[in-house]
Amino acid sequence: MLWRTLTLALALALAGCSVSTPGDPVRVRLAITTSTYNSGLLQELLPPFEESTGIQVQVIAVGTGQALALGERGEVDLVLVHARRREDAFIEQGHGLDRRDMMWNDFVILGPPGDPAGLRGGEDAVAAMKRLKDEGARFVSRGDDSGTHIRELALWERAGGVPAGEAFYLEAGQGMGNCLTLADEKEAYILSDRGTYLAFASRLDLEILVDGDPALLNPYGVMLVNPRRYPHVQAAAARKLLDYFTSAEAQRRIAAFRVAGETLFYPAAEMRP
């Protein structure tokens, strides 16, 4: 009887620790990719949500690989990334729930204005990559397991294999912005998401040489970290944020978001097949 009372008391005490007091705002942790973070979109989307719900959103900006790893360890409540196959694996392995399309934009192949490999005006990304390989044109790879890097590898595979180890293939192992600077300095070709390129365009000589290929579509997905696996996850608040991201209001804000007059993201509903 004494033991049972003690156990019950202990259980109650522990439960008390994890329940926040009414005065404290609920905090939700969102892991997102650096490219999304750097665009400034969240500063547009989050304040109205925080104001109307009283939920505080803590944004942790890391690479896609690290964002998913943080989700796998239950360190965050939601994950927003762009690597469809990795997202599906995340859900299949039971780490996450309820993946939804949030928005999309596209990748572009950039190169120096001189365009030594002659890619300009092309619309076939795989053909362009093949050409880069045949010409041995200098190419900067992210090399960091980011969503962009994963897409780049997929394109190389379709073009007959990743030219890893070749002298013209520079693996930078850095974020998009640093890699753009590196490609610009080295007069190399590079695959970039359009948003980061636009943010950096004024400081770069690099130009868009190939775009518009459906193989370059870049969908962003948002999902919940599985509360059944990680009971400390703020499930209710996280779901509210997920619902908000896919709500008509947030989608309208995404469509209206501009950087230097350019649209960076398109609402999920307008996604081309």
Partner: peptide, 13 residues
């Protein structure tokens, strides 16, 4: 140091 940073960003702790 940059190798450690890269592996961290890959989520390979």
């Amino acid at each position: 140091a940059t190798a450690a940073q890269l592996e961290l960003s890959r989520g390979r702790f």
